[in-house]
Computed example of a mutant assay.
Amino acid sequence: MSPISFASSSFNRRALLGLGASAVVLSAARPVFAQGGDKPVRFILPISAGSGVDAIARAASVALGKALGQPVVIENLPGAGGITGTSAVIKAPPDGFTLGMVSNNHVINPSVFKKMPFDAIADITPISVVGATPLVLAVNPKLPAKNVKELVALLRAKPEGYNYASSGNGTIIHLAGEMFMDEAGVKARHIPYKGTGPMVTDMIAGQVEMGVVALPAVQPYLKSGALRAIGLCGPARSPAAPEIATIAEQGLPNYAVEGWFAVIGPPKMQPADVKRVHEAIVAAFAAPEVREAMDKQGNIVKPTSPEQAVSYFRSEAARYAALVKKANVVLE
């Protein structure tokens, strides 16, 4: 199976998923939107709190508020694989006061759902693919496997005797797990959850034995021993966790998958507003405190232009359509 990697795209690799709705209001110093006054900018995350994208957005929020010169309100609106939150972005006025941060799931959904309430590319304004975040295959520490070789042996000895969790049917987390099973030639039962938070909770409790998850979302649990890392899913080790070997270097050289995150707006945003928001995103992720946070989380950041984002969304949509078909994902 061909590897899926931000590194292998046209963007340089040195460039870049339930606790319900939550909000963080951030103040900023000066108004940038000419007629905006103190009107807040809604920054919608179509995923649950506690996910990798959530950690990324919150780490950058203060700097984003400063760059925009407006109060910023972060909202978690999970549901339907990200469709619920993204729908809120799409239905908002295209005035630059509603933005969203999406991940791979945004372009996977059209291949997973029989009906979509919107076109994942035509009905948004792509602003920037900001970067990529490492994924890690983790297990409950009671599982007697400490590396890929031992896990594969365990799964082969008891076919479909173990479960692997995901943040939802057809999500990048689900597909990453399917890719591992396919590459290793093993099987396990897929248990979909409604978001990363409840998935990780049950992994720690031992309700499910394993799962792929964004590294930033589980770093504390890996350090405390509540979960054990089997291997990183990307093509290279992460500076944030250099001790975790990649799955590729542990005997599955064709396995490589990582998550990306992007900022979008409602359809038909004016070019001036797109430019203004893009410049603010670039400035926010270039801020020293944000770069430090991204490095600690292991994220690779290099914001693309809006034009590059459109091309990337299209190429990724085609790539995942083929993978969903091969993985026999049941359409919802």
Rank of each mutant, 00 (worst) to 15 (best):
I74G: 07
P192C: 03
A55W: 07
A214T: 14
A63Q: 02
A157N: 10
S87I: 02
N328A: 04
L227A: 12
G251M: 11
S27W: 09
S166C: 07
V107L: 11
P134W: 04
V274F: 04
G50I: 04
K149S: 09
K275L: 13
A55K: 06
G211K: 04
P253G: 12
L227V: 05
A165I: 04
A293L: 10
T196P: 07
V53Y: 08
A284M: 00
A236V: 09
E160G: 14
E292T: 13
Q308G: 11
A88M: 06
G69K: 03
A34G: 14
Q70A: 11
P159A: 03
E178C: 00
Q297T: 05
I172V: 14
N328D: 15
Y221F: 14
A280K: 02
A92N: 07
S27A: 15
V73H: 13
A165H: 00
V200H: 03
A236Q: 13
S22E: 15
N163K: 12
A7W: 12
A153Q: 14
V282Q: 00
A240G: 04
A145R: 13
E75D: 14
R13D: 15
Y164L: 10
A60K: 01
L155S: 04
R189M: 07
P306L: 08
N104G: 01
P242H: 09
R58P: 00
A59Y: 02
A153C: 03
Q308T: 11
S166G: 08
